[in-house]
Design a protein around this nucleic acid. Structure first.
Lengths: 344, 344
DNA sequence: CTGAAAGCGCTTACAG
DNA sequence: CTGAAAGCGCTTACAG
């Protein structure tokens, strides 16, 4: 193996005919460098394929180049996908991601967060739902003056930048898709009442019906809690009605899968006798049969964006943010699959 | 916030009345330190809660303290659980994990691995199945002299340490559990033919039947490929037999879930009319209803062990390993749930 | 807008 | 078995 010597900042400086400091400034996006110098340096950087030594950088700057990620439920497909994307994104930006699971016991979680702050010295934190709404954790971060970003938060929307998608609109559109396919008897299984998205999705469903002048009996609406189990209970009730719905919109894929399972066990064919749609586009959606029509969240984008908030012009970004700039709404996409169909 | 100053190696040296070098030696487990000095240093380290600065260490030693993890399928629950455990374990050992997904295109994967070796300078690699059996990747690692550990490899078992569980025995035991519950008509859906574990599980099933003197017609055995879809196809065939099996052992949970779905759609009650068992204990096993009886792999242990091979006495471990020391077999556990029951 | 000096906290290589 | 010196590759703080 030929050992290629890695270029150092000194090599770049020498070849560009400037000091190491100037190279450092260019690399750290310091505006106080003349355009001429900057482009010269960047050319040499590219030519030498120079990449800064992260350890040296960390050591000298006393910045950690670490980001923390706090999540709740590790078995959630959403979490692992977000994690993977965040990991990649950090890596390509010279950062490292330190991942931590929130404990049921809030004190343990707080201790863990404090460790991230004081030991690992994270430069920032990413909070996933629903832990992103825990007051104690937010207060801790605020007190320690550690910048943080939240994903799909439900409350205190002005205290930090956050990333979300328009759950309301997605639910509205998804419901309207069913309506356009000729469905008017559309049931809904509401998600976990403790999560804001459940409310938003429910409201989107209601408003789509309303704006299409469709009346829905109360029996078509059941409370679930995002688990497969809760979906089964709800489906059992709804599918034992004399006047059954022709379509059911479950607030997540797990519950949608449960609906299909119950339907099949009762000899109700999906999608011929019943259309089923879910939400999230987790792996479950394509693992069961028929594949579930659902709403895809742009998880990869969300993760990449969350990381980039810290890596690019971080200080500028986090200081003096106006409320209007806090929110980052990403696009969702409705994925039409085999579990639902037009009945016109 | 009270900013507690972190102890440095100098502080420890001073208080212990030795040089920094001696402290460094103690910390790096250098045997050439007198016991007396060592214990004195360790006492001060504990007292000061001294933790070495990783960046300084990396910079000075030119070691990366990075471990690479290469996996295939990110949607696999197995992968994300392994990942999370490995991440934790690395963190508590002052290492960092760089995670990479194998590409369909082997050349891209190789490039990525080379980047890990040459840019990130990983101190070691962890290979998950099935990528752990890719000849090109193994050769690449071997050529670069990067130590690596494989999880559940299928071939070339003498070229690297590896971690596995006894798939054969687990399948044997699981099948025997069904037999003891009174089942004699037991079907099997074989896993992906490209993965060694499929063979082992199949063999365990066969031998359990044989050692209990049970004959099984060929229609009771179907080839699957670990996907839900393939499980459906297999189940459809097996459950349309005139003389149906009373139990089906699917080589993983996805296929077991598919069997239950097909059964339910045909009005066959699980577990009253049909017992179904899976393998892996992925999240799917407890998300569907009834929960799936399955075999739990000790994924957390596997991950922790894989990491520890690099972090503790690494050089000693990887040099001059005897073949007998390469293999690390961990315990599995059969998890009895609601999808199977005794019919005696 | 640019640079010379000092230093971050460790380890390597050399002495003894 | 132990230590004094030099240096890893950057950035901070100070000058100009």
């Amino acid at each position: 193996m030929v050992e290629v010597k890695k270029a150092r900042i000194q090599d770049v400086a020498q070849q560009a005919g400037v000091s190491m400091m100037t190279v450092s400034r260019v690399l750290n996006q310091d505006p106080k460098v003349s355009d001429k110098t900057r482009s010269k340096v960047l050319a040499i950087v590219a030519q030498l394929q120079y990449k800064p030594n992260e350890s040296a950088r960390r050591l000298a700057s006393n910045k950690s180049y670490f980001l923390g990620l706090l999540y709740d439920n590790p078995s959630d497909a959403y979490v692992s996908q977000f994690l993977l994307s965040a990991l990649k994104s950090c890596r390509s930006n010279g950062f490292h991601l330190v991942v931590d699971e929130a404990d049921k016991n809030i004190d343990k979680t707080l201790q863990s967060v404090n460790e991230l702050i004081n030991e690992t010295k994270v430069d920032g934190m990413i909070l996933l739902p629903p832990v992103c709404d825990q007051k104690e954790i937010i207060d801790c971060l605020l007190a320690a003056n550690v910048p943080f970003v939240r994903v799909a938060p439900d409350s205190q929307l002005t205290i930090s930048p956050y990333i979300c998608m328009d759950d309301y609109q997605a639910a509205f559109d998804l419901t309207e898709t069913l309506i356009k396919q000729g469905h008017s008897k559309i049931g809904h299984i509401i998600g976990d009442p403790n999560q804001g998205v459940s409310r938003l999705r429910y409201q989107g469903y209601l408003d789509a019906l309303r704006s299409n002048k469709i009346n829905t009996p109360p029996e078509y609406i059941e409370q679930g809690c995002f688990t497969y189990q809760s979906g089964m209970v709800a489906a059992q009730k709804m599918l034992s009605l004399v006047d059954k719905p022709s379509a059911i919109f479950a607030a997540n894929d797990d519950m949608a899968a449960a609906v299909m399972s119950i339907a099949q066990s009762q000899g109700i064919n999906v999608p011929n006798d019943l259309s089923v749609v879910g939400f999230d586009d987790t792996t479950l959606a394509t693992v069961v049969w028929p594949n579930i029509t659902t709403v895809r969240q742009p998880i990869d984008e969300m993760a990449t964006l969350a990381v980039s908030l810290f890596t690019s012009n971080r200080d500028k970004y986090f200081s003096g943010l106006k409320n209007s700039q806090l929110r980052h709404i990403l696009e969702f996409k409705i994925i039409q699959r085999e579990s639902s169909k037009s009945i016109i």
